[in-house]
Design a protein around this nucleic acid. Structure first.
Length: 1143
RNA sequence: AGUCGCGUAGCUCAGUUGGUUAGAGCACUACACUGAUAAUGUAGGGGUCGGCAGUUCAAGUCUGCCCGCGACUACCA
């Protein structure tokens, strides 16, 4: 055979990766790997679409490595793993990027720039970094089909999204609602929850808070037990309610209590006005508002301004009894409209707690999401104003100030507003930040209102309070919660189904599924789909102006049909959507907004102007990526594309993609969207800080891969910590992996290649029978088979970290450090015998299987190694490791006894070496024997690995000592596991007693098998397994022990041993000189050495050995050497000249 | 603010159903070894297992409360 195993000058992962990359491209290896598995059982994988308008970061390497590992693994297992790439192209991040790029704001869109041009800019920007992403994909070895990706902005994709939403619409799960949403008055736009969760949005702010007194009405509409008990005192009775936003108090229309909460009625004084009052608040919070010490103090002794205010408890009641009680409007500027419901009543609120405040919650339905919800349940009117257009508005306009009366409907103002009172406050900004003329130092509306309440005996307590509050990331100003019109999916209605289906999903880690995701589902709210933006999937609902008639468009065809009708009705002139060519039209704004449809009754219908949440886009990908149901039947979908067997993304997607996939699949298919999901943690910087542009601590993935290689980067990320734990990313860690793991594997391969080339081993011989292989071969094969089994199980369980660590451990510890080290001689010594072939075959197989097992993790290096091996042996028909089948383990080759034996051998060697070290005896100095006290079974074990031990530690023989031999001294310890349960209480003294046993007592226990004693009056009978006995010392020997194992070493150096040592030293020196002088491994030499008595004796006895080891043809001792090569120092205190020449 | 996760050697991580003296790699120090040599071995120093209580004969491991970090959720007044 002329073919040779490739040899290297050094390990260069980056070069190897480039070569393999080219090879893959040339041979279309990825395509081949798909093709050969076509028709096999599919393993369905969904690629979560990244957004190509941002640069890829190192965390993308993490997420994609995980995806790649399992897709490659399943491919090796024979599955057909289709991997369609995708791009997320819509949404706010895109729009904001474009705004920034063009230097415009939202208000400019449609004025300074047309929607058409703006969307064009978005469409272009969205693929801005596509090339960089493709480069990342390629360089990191992520196999995904980039040729036919799904792109969310295509008409086909949008059409599928429409269709899916149509299914949801048809099930009655889509509705339009008026809800409270985060809104930035300064930016004039509503904000998505996504925007509120940008870093730094929530900030601690100090606000003026107020506990207000809501006066109980003495003209009740209904009889009430509580009111009866108050009797005449009703005149001075109040509810106490706390608010952190006093500016919402004028919009108060109800108070909420918890049905089951205990409340109490207290008589006291108002601390500001000293008026006599009776107040109602939650019992649990009594002492946060009233001092314990002043209970039942002397009321008559109280003077205005006294710090200690007397109070007494009148009676207690349940929240339920308070429900229905009327109170007077706190700030009577504006009356709510009767047509919208009742007002100023106590209602029951399920979310009321007694954690803070008073246990009674002020309800302003126009400014709080919970407020609006409970108010609606109890038919409470929100405080709405009517503007000039006749539209209902909250008290605050979109710029963040109280409405000016001039902006309101005149008739309304006359009827509902107390102009004299309101005049003072109209136009006032609710937060100073919204008013460009005000600063932090100016009095806030909150303060002014609180002061006014204080004067009127309506404020019980006013104080500053610090809490975290969201800010608009664009303007840096606080957000307002504000009622806006939106479309919702009634996800709450399918909550139970979502929860029960979630229980069938295998989450990695499990806690994310049950905890973070499970809890989220338990507390699910309806999904707000609306986004009032420009670049996104338009909501395909057309409505008449009065909202009474509407149509949902779920396909281009339906759109076209409806347009035709509309043309007939005269609302439209032409139909741009009447074509089968999907490149001929655009479903985006502004084109879609030009479509006016006709209602059943012949009225014009306009599109609801909203776009839909981009998260719906990505959650729709299982269907939309195949243009389902237009170009893919349900049967086809279910057979090949749905649901996914596996998906993986960052844990931050839990409420994002993981949720939208789950929700859409549940609603549309009534099934899970994915069966297994891995959610990986964050990639943090070296110090454990989150990577961010602001801190500039991000890591460039290309820099890492160019420096250390993609394989090392991948291996580092997977093996360093579990994917779901956060990874503290340290480049030095990658370098360590490169040196430690890849370096060792490379060395092992190089060692193999060097000698296999010399011997022309090409795996052409018959496989040496397992039973004929030596012990050490069978040992490494046993570990190898165990490794296959374990790695297979780990990957099947989605535990990549365990698998990678196992492979690494096998390579570094077992294969390199033990097998190769002990077997070196077999490779470079002697004839091409069966033993040598066995060694080659064994090592070859280990390398080959490591390349297969590791190929999912380090696809480049492992392919290189596999190819180097296979190109010579041609054992496999496949040219790439990625085309092979995952190896099968062979149970017959797993021998646990053998593994245990070898473990014993390793321990013994390590003990002997430590003894040598302690007594300063070089390994090259042979020693006579070691002694090991042990029983018959252990002896039998050691016998089988005896030769390995002897050669490894350079000792002539092993002698076994009987355990009862009287030269041994022993130690004894209690076995807590067996004794603990039996003698719990006296364990401590018992253990102490046992440790103190004399040699005689130990001997008695050992011979009779039991020993009775008395501890603190308790009789104890010890049996052999209740204690652990180990030998400690052997008289006259040097001894080391670890656990139960004891080894003694004979350190006497006889004359013969001394000579042998000298001969070995000589061999060593000659070898070094050969190497220093760059002799070939096969060169024969002639050696002359300066004469010496000891040396002469050694040479006489070991001449053959010395010459054989060093390929010396002539070895002579001479008196003087004219041109010595160098000097050697093998005899103590003596330097001898030596000359070596090629023969 | 709440929920979840994490906290073990200077660094990165293991640590089984609670059980004896808490481990590995890197780094550091010393000594060896040297037909794998840009390797390797042995030994050593380095720990209040985040803190405090509790359960137990026995807690890194179980429980509670704090502290720090992170994520998620949220103007529950």
């Amino acid at each position: 055979m002329s073919e040779k195993y490739k040899e290297y000058k050094g390990l260069n992962l980056v070069d190897i990766e480039k070569n393999i990359q080219n090879y893959w491209k040339q041979e279309q290896t990825f395509e081949q790997s798909m093709k050969i598995r076509e028709g096999n059982k599919p393993f369905i994988f969904f690629e979560g679409p990244p957004s190509a308008n941002g640069k890829p970061g190192i965390h993308h390497v993490m997420a994609r490595t995980i995806k790649d590992i399992f897709c490659r693994y399943k491919s090796l297992k024979g599955y057909y793993v289709s991997r369609k790439a995708g791009w997320d192209t819509h949404g706010l991040p895109v729009e904001l990027g474009v705004e920034k790029q063009l230097g415009i704001t939202k208000e400019d869109i449609g004025t300074k720039i047309s929607v058409e041009d703006y969307n064009k800019a978005c469409r272009e920007s969205v693929m801005q970094f596509k090339d960089l992403w493709d480069k990342l994909t390629e360089q990191m070895g992520y196999w995904v089909d980039l040729n036919d990706p799904y792109i969310t902005f295509t008409n086909e994709y949008i059409e599928s999204v429409w269709w899916l939403l149509g299914e949801i619409y048809n099930k009655g799960l889509l509705y339009k609602g008026y809800t409270i949403q985060p809104y930035s008055p300064a930016a004039g736009t509503g904000l998505s929850s996504h925007e509120l969760n940008m870093p730094g949005c929530y900030r601690d702010v100090k606000d003026t808070t107020c506990v207000a007194q809501f006066k109980i009405c003495n003209k009740q509409t209904k009889e009430n037990e509580i009111l009866n008990r108050l009797g005449k005192d009703i005149e001075k009775a109040y509810f106490l309610a706390w608010t952190t936003t006093p500016w919402t108090l004028p919009s108060n229309t109800a108070l909420a209590v918890g049905d089951k909460i205990d409340y109490c009625c207290v008589e006291s004084f108002n601390p500001y006005t000293a008026d006599s009052i009776i107040v109602i608040l939650a019992k649990n919070l009594l002492y946060t508002h009233f001092k314990k010490e002043t209970e039942n103090a002397d009321f008559s002794a109280y003077n205005k301004g006294d710090k200690d205010i007397p109070w007494k408890l009148l009676f207690e009641c349940k929240g339920k009894e308070l429900v229905g009680i009327d109170y007077e409007q706190l700030i009577p500027w504006i009356r709510p409209q009767e047509s919208e419901g009742e007002a100023f009543k106590v209602i029951s609120g399920d979310y009321v707690t007694t954690e803070d405040g008073t246990g009674i919650v002020h309800i302003a339905p126009t400014f709080g999401a919970d407020d609006a919800r409970v108010a609606k349940l109890s038919n409470i009117a929100p405080l709405h104003l009517v503007d000039k257009n006749g539209k209902q508005q909250p008290m605050v306009d979109k710029s963040g100030k109280f409405f000016l009366m001039e902006d309101l409907d005149e008739e309304y103002v006359n009827k509902y507003i107390d102009k004299d009172l309101y005049k003072k406050y109209e136009g006032r900004f609710v937060k100073n930040a919204y008013d460009t003329t005000l600063t932090e130092k100016d009095a806030t509306l909150d303060v002014d209102l609180s002061v006014e309440l204080k004067m009127e005996n309506k404020a019980f307590k006013i104080e500053k309070h610090t809490h975290s509050y969201p800010h608009c990331w664009r303007t840096d100003k606080p957000v307002l919660y504000y009622p806006l019109d939106s479309w919702f999916i009634r996800t709450t209605e399918i909550k139970d189904k979502l929860i029960s289906l979630n229980k069938t999903i295998n989450w990695k880690p499990q806690a994310t599924g049950t905890g973070r995701f499970g809890n989220w589902l338990e507390n699910l709210v309806d999904w707000n789909l609306s986004r009032s933006r420009f670049w996104g999937t338009p909501l395909p609902i057309w409505r008449t102006e009065d909202g009474k008639e509407e149509i949902f468009i779920n396909s281009v065809q339906k759109l076209s049909e409806q347009i035709d009708k509309s043309i007939q009705a005269g609302f439209m002139k032409d139909n741009p959507y009447k074509t089968d060519d999907y490149n001929a039209f655009d479903l985006h704004r502004p084109y879609i907004d030009k479509v006016i449809l006709v209602s059943e009754s012949g009225k014009p219908m306009k599109r609801e102007s909203d776009l839909i949440d981009v998260w719906f886009d990505s959650g729709a990908m299982p269907f939309a990526q195949r243009h389902y149901p237009f170009e893919c039947t349900t049967e086809e979908l279910k057979a090949k594309y749905f649901p996914a067997d596996f998906i993986a993304e960052g844990v931050d997607q839990t409420r994002g993609w993981f949720f939208t996939l789950h929700a859409i699949a549940t609603m549309v298919m009534g099934d899970v969207s994915y069966k297994n999901v891995v959610s990986n943690g964050l990639v943090l910087d070296k110090q454990g800080n989150k990577m961010s542009k602001r801190l500039g601590n991000g890591v460039d993935p290309f820099e890492m891969m160019n420096k250390y290689g993609a394989d090392a980067t991948r291996w580092y990320m997977i093996s360093n910590s579990q994917p779901w734990d956060n990874l503290k990313f340290d480049p030095e860690g990658i370098d360590e992996i490169r040196r430690k793991f890849f370096g060792t594997l490379y060395n092992t391969y190089s060692f193999f290649a060097l000698y296999a080339n010399i011997d022309a081993f090409a795996y052409k011989e018959q496989e040496i029978e397992y039973n004929k292989r030596p012990e050490i071969d069978r040992w490494i094969l046993s570990l190898l088979n165990t490794l296959i089994k374990d790695v297979d199980n780990d990957l099947n369980d989605y535990e990549p970290t365990r698998a990678a660590r196992r492979i690494s451990n096998f390579v570094c510890e077992d294969l390199s450090n033990w097998y190769v080290r002990l077997c070196r001689r077999r490779f470079w010594k002697g004839e091409y015998t069966e033993d040598k072939i066995s060694a080659y075959q064994t090592l070859y197989r280990c390398l080959e299987i490591v390349s297969q097992l590791g190929s999912s993790f380090a696809p480049f290096f492992m392919d290189e190694m596999y190819r180097n091996l296979n190109n010579v042996s041609h054992r496999h028909e496949f040219a790439s490791v990625h085309l092979t089948e995952f190896p099968q383990y062979n149970d017959n080759e797993i021998d646990k006894d053998l593994e245990a034996r070898m473990n014993l051998a390793q321990k013994i060697c390590s003990l002997v070496l430590s003894l040598r070290k302690r007594h300063n005896l070089k390994v090259r100095q042979p020693l006579a024997k070691i002694m090991i006290p042990c029983d018959a079974t252990t002896k039998a074990h050691i016998e089988k690995v005896k030769n390995l031990i002897l050669s490894e530690v350079n000792v002539k023989e092993i002698e076994y000592l009987d355990l009862h031999n009287n030269v041994l001294s022993k130690t004894i310890k209690a076995n807590f596991k067996t004794l603990g349960p039996k003698y719990g209480k006296i364990m401590k003294s018992l253990a102490a007693k046992i440790v103190a046993f004399t040699q005689e007592e130990i001997a008695e226990l050992e011979t009779s098998g039991s020993y009775s004693l008395d501890i603190d009056g308790t009789a104890v009978v010890l049996e052999l397994n209740d204690v652990e006995i180990a030998t400690k010392d052997i008289e006259g020997w040097v001894v080391a022990n670890e656990g139960q194992l004891t080894v003694a070493l004979d350190v006497t150096i006889t004359d013969a041993l001394r000579k042998e040592a000298v001969s070995r030293e000589l061999v060593n020196r000659i070898q070094n000189i050969r190497k220093d002088n760059d002799f070939e491994v096969t060169d024969n030499i002639i050696v002359k050495i300066e004469n010496d008595e000891l040396l002469a004796a050694a040479v006489e006895m070991y001449r053959d050995y010395i010459c054989g080891e060093t390929l010396t043809k002539e070895l002579t001792l001479v008196d003087t050497i004219a041109n010595p090569t160098t000097k050697i120092d093998i005899i103590e205190c003596k330097e001898l000249a030596i000359e070596i020449t090629k023969a």
